[in-house]
Design a protein around this nucleic acid. Structure first.
Lengths: 218, 218
DNA sequence: ATAATTATTTAGACAAGTCTAAAAATACAG
DNA sequence: CTGTATTTTTAGACTTGTCTAAATAATTAT
């Protein structure tokens, strides 16, 4: 049996370690879990014990194949529930995260498979992130941040990095969403702000915003 | 903050104590929770401490107004999720309970209100039990068990008492469900079995079945 | 009314997950 | 390369919910 806390640690290791491929150090894991390094160490040992993680003292932690499988399954559930909440229950994209964090831990294979079918086998969640299929396969879309994007090229918004409610509300307030077509008018070297054009309007966004908005060339 | 375990104890007290109006003794509570009497005592104390339960040593436990509110809210969530699972995700009525037991603990007022609306404000779950509305109000339907029903009167099946998967599968196998019209042909005094007629077929059911099938006169 | 039985509570212990404080290992700067 | 700073681990303790075993209260039977 895998506990709720174990699942959350596994998920955190996955996200911190470049989609499960890299090593994560104890302090960043503790930070991500809002806990202390000593607690993280204890849990890392337990995960290694249960064969979800590779661990050598002072060398950081990474997920085993088994651990990655668990992580991807949680992510699949999280993102499917997000689609459900937005498409069927009138949630906005900044409201879904908190509830999906709870729903992702419900244990029932039938539930998630039926939900997937009910939603029409979606491939992206409301923030543009890919949804793993039943076998854990998913496409990592080629994406550039607005910060790294080039002037005078046409882009379309395909996702966000920081999905904090505040950031998502900011985007909503400025009428930027998935699918919005964006062109860079000017990149200001002084403060790294970016002047963009979309839907006929012009907007200057901060470096912070630019780094968290993902685009794709069209 | 109320914990998952506390919620489950409150729910059990509600169900055991005649919909929250009566007193429950420690042993039955422990049995219902699959735990030991000493554990039940500990939890009862905690619930009394937090004002969800009334408790005097050796006198059993009952829910406070606050406790009843919590119980009814959990039941509301449980039953709404059951409707969702059956109507939208192709679950059969014997498959819903286990998953609804998990879903009922998800914390989000918006989630449950939106789900309620999405389902069209249903008043009964798939087993015929009433669903409390947003304010905790619900109709307790007048029901007789088949065991107590009288011969030669027309009844309709409106619910079940024992909602174990085995019992529900038995009913499915015999094509009895909510809404099935039933008439008693003969009550056998020897073993309390009951011969019934429905949809043109004739069936003899055991006392056990008769006690767990709820009917309403038509 | 008293003895036997049953129900309930208490006491002390354990596992999971967390914490603080201190020790040990690693990394970094001069 | 050596000392300092940082990171990580260990040790011991606390909380929640559980257990067993023993003590106490309530109930039932004679």
């Amino acid at each position: 049996m895998i506990t709720l806390t174990e699942e959350n640690y596994i998920k955190a290791i996955y996200h911190l370690g470049k989609q499960g491929t890299g090593t994560v150090n104890t302090n960043s894991l503790a930070d991500a879990m809002n806990t202390k390094a000593s607690s993280a160490t204890d849990m890392i040992k337990k995960l290694a014990e249960k064969n979800y993680a590779n661990y050598k003292k002072y060398q950081g932690v990474s997920l085993t194949k088994e651990g990655k499988k668990v992580a991807i399954n949680i992510i699949r559930k999280h993102r499917l529930w997000e689609v459900f909440l937005v498409e069927k229950l009138n949630f906005t994209w900044d409201q879904v995260h908190e509830v999906a964090e709870q729903l992702e831990h419900i244990k029932s294979q039938k539930l998630i498979d039926e939900l997937d079918a009910f939603l029409g086998f979606p491939t992206q969640d409301p923030h543009g992130d890919p949804i793993p299929d039943k076998d854990g396969k998913f496409e990592q879309v080629e994406k550039t941040s607005l910060f790294n994007a080039k002037e005078s090229i046409n882009y379309v918004c395909i996702g966000v990095n920081d999905s904090s409610a505040d950031f998502l509300k900011y985007l909503d307030g400025n009428h930027i969403g998935l699918g919005t077509n964006i062109k860079i008018i000017h990149k200001e070297p002084f403060d790294n702000s970016v002047k963009i054009q979309f839907d006929g309007s012009i907007l200057v966004v901060s470096q912070n915003v630019a780094k968290n908005l993902f685009l794709k060339e069209v």
